[in-house]
Amino acid sequence: MEHTYNGMPASDLTNVAWRKSRRSNSQGNCVEVAELADGSVAVRNSRFPDGPALIYTRAEMRALVLGVKDGDFDGLLN
């Protein structure tokens, strides 16, 4: 697998399956995630699929998802 790093072009991540939320709107205003071979997770802006990808560990993604489920970021929606 290629060397991955934060900010690398998402288009450089080959053989990955990008997924987005079913809550994504038709204008494509969402983020997409892809599991990488080493278990880490890449995140990209769906409007700029060739733009930068942020690479997170499983532990970082777990903390984010659990925080979202717990409502830790609800204030960002107001």
Rank of each mutant, 00 (worst) to 15 (best):
N29I: 11
V41I: 14
G39D: 00
G75I: 09
V41N: 01
S24E: 10
S24W: 03
D12L: 12
S46W: 04
R47M: 14
V31C: 08
M61A: 04
Y56P: 06
G67R: 09
A34M: 02
E60N: 02
N45S: 06
R19T: 06
L36Y: 01
V31Y: 05
P52E: 07
T4E: 04
R58A: 13
F48A: 13
E32G: 11
A17E: 14
R22W: 06
G7I: 02
F73W: 08
K20P: 04
A63T: 08
A17K: 12
F48R: 11
G39A: 03
V65P: 05
F48D: 15
A34S: 01
S40H: 09
Y5V: 10
M61H: 00
V31N: 04
R47Q: 15
L66I: 08
D70L: 12
R19Y: 07
T57E: 04
R22L: 13
N29M: 08
S21H: 01
V68F: 03
T57S: 15
V41D: 02
C30A: 10
G7H: 05
K69C: 10
I55C: 06
D72P: 14
K20W: 12
G71K: 02
N6E: 03
R22V: 14
E35V: 06
A59M: 07
A37D: 09
S11H: 11
D50Q: 14
R44Y: 01
S21Q: 02
E60F: 04
L36K: 00
E35T: 00
P49L: 06
A59I: 05
A63I: 05
E60I: 06
M1T: 12
P49R: 04
K20F: 14
E2C: 12
N45V: 12
D50K: 13
D50F: 05
S40F: 00
D70R: 15
M8C: 06
P9W: 03
P52I: 01
N78W: 13
V16Q: 00
L76M: 13
N15D: 14
L66T: 14
A10H: 02
N29G: 08
F48M: 09
A59W: 04
G67N: 08
F73A: 01
K69V: 04
K20V: 15
R23E: 07
G28P: 10
E35A: 06
G71N: 07
A37R: 02
E35H: 08
P52S: 07
N6H: 13
R58H: 12
A37F: 02
D12H: 10
R23Y: 09
E32C: 04
A59H: 06
S46P: 11
V16D: 00
A34P: 05
N45L: 10
K20N: 15
R22A: 11
R47V: 08
H3Q: 13
M8F: 02
A37C: 07
G51D: 00
S24F: 11
S46M: 10
G67F: 11
Y5H: 11
A42R: 05
E32M: 10
V65W: 12
E2L: 15
R44T: 05
V16R: 03
G39S: 02
V16P: 08
S46G: 07
W18H: 09
L13E: 01
T14E: 11
D72E: 15
R47K: 15
L66W: 09
E35F: 01
P9T: 03
L77P: 14
R23W: 06
K69G: 12
K20Y: 15
M1R: 11
